Amino acid sequence: MYIQRTSGDKYEKIVLSQQDYDSTIIPFQRGNIVDARGTVLATSVDVYNVVLDCKVLNGNEKKFEGSIAATVDLVTECFEEIDAETIKTQLKDNASSQYYILAKKVAYEEMAKFQEKKEEKGY
């Protein structure tokens, strides 16, 4: 108690100066859940949701003319289950919405195709 009272600030500064904050990505292994005999019960795979942020896309249209048309074309080209009219309607009716799910459980391959085409076109 005596040390805390007389030198508490000094030791507190020393402790705080030694703290280090670091962000590290921890790799993980996806795999199968199996029973005792080795029978696969469940398989873990990457899936994605395709989300439309109307507020950002409408804001970008003001800065970069044609960005909505380009986005709609790219999304409908890469994801067969997404309809261009759905996107346009959502952009018009809910212009300030920031979270509208266009597709759920999209496979990694489809998402990779989308990312690749997006980079090719320079978006």
Rank of each mutant, 00 (worst) to 15 (best):
M1D: 14
I3N: 07
Q4V: 11
T6Q: 10
T6E: 09
S7I: 08
K10Q: 13
K10S: 12
E12R: 11
K13I: 06
S17F: 09
Q19E: 14
S23A: 12
P27V: 11
P27C: 12
Q29K: 14
N32I: 08
I33P: 05
A36G: 10
A42E: 07
A42K: 15
N49R: 01
V50I: 15
L52N: 00
L52W: 00
L52F: 00
D53S: 01
D53R: 00
C54A: 13
C54K: 03
K55D: 05
E61M: 06
K62V: 11
F64M: 09
I68Y: 05
I68Q: 04
L74W: 01
V75N: 01
T76E: 03
E77T: 15
E81H: 01
D83F: 01
D83N: 09
D83W: 00
A84L: 07
A84Q: 07
I87G: 01
Q90I: 05
Q90R: 08
K92N: 12
A95C: 05
Q98H: 04
Q98A: 06
Q98M: 09
Y99A: 03
Y99K: 05
L102V: 00
L102A: 00
A103E: 02
K105H: 09
K105I: 07
A107M: 07
E110V: 03
M111I: 08
A112L: 10
K113D: 01
F114K: 01
K118W: 02
E120L: 06
K121P: 00
G122I: 06
G122F: 03
Y123R: 13
